[in-house]
Design a protein around this nucleic acid. Structure first.
Length: 898
RNA sequence: GCCAGCUUGGCGGAAUUGGUAGACGCGCUCGACUCAAAAUCGAGUUCUACGGAGUGUGGGUUCGAGUCCCACAGCUGGUACCA
């Protein structure tokens, strides 16, 4: 390296050194070589020795279990302290390792955790692995290696990377969803669901044994279980050989997998039973409004009515949210799959109807939902009677009416529904106005709003839309034509997968009666058999069918071969952290009550940080499971996560989403190697507000690295040997005076504390920079002041602050002997923040014209006098009349003159 | 189409919630140290025809608007015929 450096330098310096070298030129080469070697070293030298002390502190924290927190009843548990449960969304341990998005949320929660500990809380801050998942299985299929091998190797890598960043997790609580001790309890919860039904009167889950006692039949009970088997149209991916939940289907499609509709028998979870509670109990949570809205829309509650139309003695029930517009219903539409279609179709229309049905069945999901396509449909030849006025309306079938929602049939009001309007226009169906918009400038045609008045609706005329809706429902109920009805878009959760790497269902099938049965709890966990070949075979029963020995349970029973989705493990992991090693129960009640109970309102997880991608999947599923457990008194709160914060995505340096193909992925390992863990942590918090999307900048990391080096150099300097030693600038001398540095420090203590509470980390860091800059430019810094800066910086940059503190202690033995993280958060002195003079802005007609410095407690009159006396003011009001003077004490004076 | 959010220097972002727009950092410029460079330290950095003008655009409320109201535009995310 040095050799080529010499040659390069010489060739650029000029050709005169080439050829024979004179003795003095040899000497020159020697000197060049020396400087170049020195330069190489200085370039490699870090501005402070993070590469030495960061691993050292990590080893200490690991060996001493510095961040271990005890449960009630365990030694070291301090019942006097309030609790704080701070949770990260645990990662899927992918082969690619940690990316810079992970440390973003993890640093934020780590700062809050460390801060809360210093504030005297028992902080539960755990980490674990969402380790079931398709990538490990896909890789296993490719290599023939068991998925557990890659999974546990990946976990080791993730653990190494997280420890490298100095996060203060209690590693004794580490869990993995693939761990048999964990699988056992996931299956145990599933059996709870299996053995439960939703009691609609009590509005809670109850054991099905209650129904048995009441004499319900086996079939009746199976129809109400919270975990049940049903045959239905599902999302089947031939590529992956498995079905997918509605919530997931789109995601996999976008990754390039094909997903098609297929009629299969599958395990379902009755999440719809909880639809109302999932909406209502969302309201009081401290979650981002946007996520609440996403969940509300996903659950999709609508209020309306079911109305019965008569068609040759057969009743066709429709669902409508606008019963008020019944007088405007000029035709009906059934979905092509509606069961009454064959019965009502007239012989003349039979051929056309059947052709249409066939065409619809052949269409893919995508074609069917493609909005840009025109409405299609066929007349059945039949007519129904509109119950409000006895009019005959034609019955059509069309694929814009969906089978799965409402009753699969609608009354069409083309005047006041845009879809019906479009359809009626195309097929020349009558359009009758029944609502007059309140805003007269709007046309009544295709007016779908609620701000209107009823017309052409007999005795409902003149009523407002909302009033008419209410009265129409009562009228329908009175006459027996229908009733009020609430509908939800939410569907039951398709819970089975045809994969190997997931929790098997703890279920067996009786080969004689064909019924399913739970296996005894004593047989849990039920693990997958060891198999050589776990490739999906296209058999919708999944790869486990190939394990013939395993399937054989007894002569009478065979095992269920489906496995659970990845969500199963992530549904309740936050609960297992509380009591991860308990082999008697999924958690002990005493422990649950301490960490999750509402003894410290409002209970549950106090802070949950993660990405938005789980807005409707994990966060909905978890809430559902939690509510079932709550109904049985197994958990203390009806909601698991009291406060949720979404971190924003980190984009690549080019402003694009990070991806391998774009080559803009930043690897945390590289950043830690070049700048240290503290720099990475601090930079990710300094980039911008946690919640926002923001681009990466390696230059920005350098800036942060420079800041930490400045903090270091307040106390440290290099001696002749190139060793870092205390500089002597930090001094024990302290005359107790309120120096500018001390003022700045106390402002910083105040601001950093407030900003951590508000999770506004970027502004906290800029304040600490200002404070450091003040200390850098000061002659001397009292050790007490410097240590307090280290205190507030410690949650952000734990390694450098502990290192500086331990080095200071050698020179200042009076400092407490424990680590900073065990010491209380510093208290600022409000007296130091009081300014005795203030700079007051003086405006003339709202424009800044001058500033004056006055006593902080100057009265309004004094301020006004000072303002009027300012020379610039005189200049600007010369020749004008002062109309008004606005005085805001402590801020400004505005003189209005013209 | 519908719903939500965003829009401030060359860049990331601040702004006590209606009261000095541009804190802090990056980048850039100049200077000090050095034979030189790196590192470090110091000064400057919205634009300007030097009057002023400036927070996507146009209007409004107000003594005063980045902040509140109305209209529009552009980006980002979610959603897709849910009657």
């Amino acid at each position: 390296m040095a050799q080529s450096g010499i040659l390069l330098s010489f060739s650029t310096a000029g050709g005169h050194v080439s050829g024979q070298l004179a003795p003095h030129e040899k000497d020159l080469i020697f000197r060049w070589e020396c400087t170049i070697v020195a330069r190489d070293m200085s370039e490699r030298k870090n501005p402070y020795p993070f590469d030495v002390f960061e691993p050292k502190w990590q080893a200490i924290w690991d060996a001493e279990k510095t961040f271990k927190v005890s449960n009630p009843g365990e030694p070291g548990f301090d019942a006097e302290k309030p609790k704080c449960y701070i949770l990260d969304m645990f990662p899927y341990p992918s082969g690619a390792g940690l990316h810079v998005g992970h440390p973003e949320g993890y640093t934020a929660t780590d700062i809050v955790s460390r801060y809360k500990r210093m504030k005297g809380y028992n902080v539960l801050h755990p980490m674990g692995w969402d380790s079931f998942g398709l990538p490990a299985e896909q890789y296993a299929i490719k290599t023939g290696q068991h998925p557990s091998i890659t999974t546990y190797a990946n976990i080791d890598n993730f653990r190494r990377q997280l420890k490298m960043l100095g996060f203060s997790y209690d590693w004794d609580r580490e869990i993995a969803t693939t761990d048999p001790h964990y699988v056992r309890w996931t299956q145990w919860i599933f059996l709870r669901l299996y053995n439960s039904y939703y009691n609609t009167e009590l509005k809670k889950a109850r054991p099905v044994s209650e129904l048995e006692a009441k004499g319900w039949s086996r079939e009746e009970i199976d129809n109400v279980r919270l975990a049940y088997v049903a045959e239905g149209l599902v999302n089947w991916s031939p590529d992956m050989g498995t079905v997918l939940a509605n919530e997931e289907a789109e995601e996999w499609k976008s990754k390039g997998f094909t997903v098609e509709r297929r009629k299969l028998r599958q395990w379902m979870l009755r999440i719809t039973a909880y639809a109302e509670r999932l909406i209502d109990e969302l309201e009081p949570l401290d979650w981002p409004e946007s996520i609440k809205l996403l969940q509300r829309n996903w659950i999709g509650k609508s209020t309306g009515a079911e109305v019965n139309f008569d068609c040759q003695g057969k009743t066709i029930t429709v669902y409508t949210t606008r019963p008020d517009t019944l007088f405007g219903a000029t035709y009906m539409v059934l979905s092509p799959e509606h069961e009454l279609v064959p019965q009502i179709t007239t012989p003349e229309q039979k051929a056309a109807v059947e052709a249409y049905q066939k065409a619809c069945a052949a269409k893919s999901d995508l074609e069917r939902t493609d909005l840009s396509k025109e409405k299609t449909g066929v007349f059945t030849g039949a007519y129904a009677t509109n119950p409000v006025n006895g009019k005959q309306v034609p019955i059509w079938i069309a694929d814009y009416v969906l089978t799965g929602y409402g009753t699969g049939a609608i009354m069409a009001v083309p005047a006041h529904d845009s879809r019906d309007f479009e359809f009626a226009e195309k097929f020349g169906l009558p359009i009758i106005q029944v609502v007059q918009p309140d805003d007269a400038s709007l046309p009544w045609q295709n007016f779908c709003g609620y701000d209107g008045t009823m017309v052409n609706s007999e005795h409902f005329n003149g009523l407002s839309v909302t009033e008419a809706k209410k009265q129409m429902i009562s009228w329908l109920e009175e006459k027996g034509y229908g009733h009020g009805k609430v509908n939800y878009k939410l569907r039951d959760w398709l819970f089975s997968r045809q994969r190997y790497w997931g929790e098997p269902f703890p279920i067996i099938w009786n080969t004689k009666d064909g019924h399913h049965y739970a296996i005894p709890e004593s047989e849990l966990p039920l693990l997958q058999p060891d198999m050589e070949d776990f490739k999906p075979s296209g058999d919708p029963r999944g790869p486990l069918v190939k394990a013939t020995d395993w399937i054989h349970y007894s002569d009478e029973f065979t095992r269920e071969t489906n496995t659970m989705p990845q969500w199963a493990g992530s549904c309740w992991y936050y609960l297992r952290y509380l009591d991860p090693k308990n082999d008697q129960a999924f958690i002990s009640p005493e422990v649950e009550q301490y960490w999750m109970g509402s003894g410290h309102t409002p209970g549950g997880v106090d802070l949950y940080v993660g990405g938005t991608e789980h807005a409707v999947l994990h966060l909905l599923y978890s809430r559902f499971w939690h509510k079932v457990l709550y109904d049985y008194g197994l958990v203390s709160t009806n909601e698991p996560f009291n406060k949720l914060v979404n971190q924003g995505l980190i984009l690549g340096e080019d402003g694009q989403k990070m991806s391998k193909s774009r080559g803009n992925v930043v690897n945390p390992d590289d950043i830690v190697r070049d700048y240290g863990a503290d720099s990475l942590r601090l930079y990710e918090m300094f980039m911008g507000p946690l919640k926002e999307v923001k681009p990466w900048s390696t230059k920005g990391v350098e800036g942060i690295n420079r800041f930490l080096a400045r903090v270091w150099r307040v106390a440290m300097q290099e001696n002749q040997e190139g060793e870092w030693v205390l500089s002597g600038k930090v001094t024990a001398e302290d005359d107790g005076s309120v120096t500018p540095v001390r003022k700045e420090l106390h402002k910083t203590i105040k601001k950093v504390g407030e900003d951590i509470e508000a999770m506004s980390f970027n502004t906290a860091i800029s304040k600490m920079m200002e404070c450091t800059n003040a200390m850098t430019s000061a002659e001397k810094v009292c050790v007490a002041d410097y240590v307090q800066l280290l205190h507030v910086l410690n949650p952000f940059a734990p390694h450098i602050t502990e290192e500086l503190y331990s080095r200071l202690r050698e020179a200042f033995p009076a400092l407490p002997a424990c680590q900073l993280c065990f010491q209380p958060w510093p208290v600022y002195n409000p007296e130091y923040l009081v300014e005795n003079t203030k700079e007051i802005v003086i405006q003339v007609n709202g424009k800044l014209r001058d500033k004056v410095t006055v006593a902080a407690d100057a009265s309004k009159d004094e301020l006004e006098a000072a303002a009027m006396a300012a020379p610039k003011v005189q200049e600007f009001i010369a020749g004008k009349t002062v109309r008004k003077v606005i005085v805001v004490p402590g801020r400004l004076v505005n003189i209005v003159a013209n």
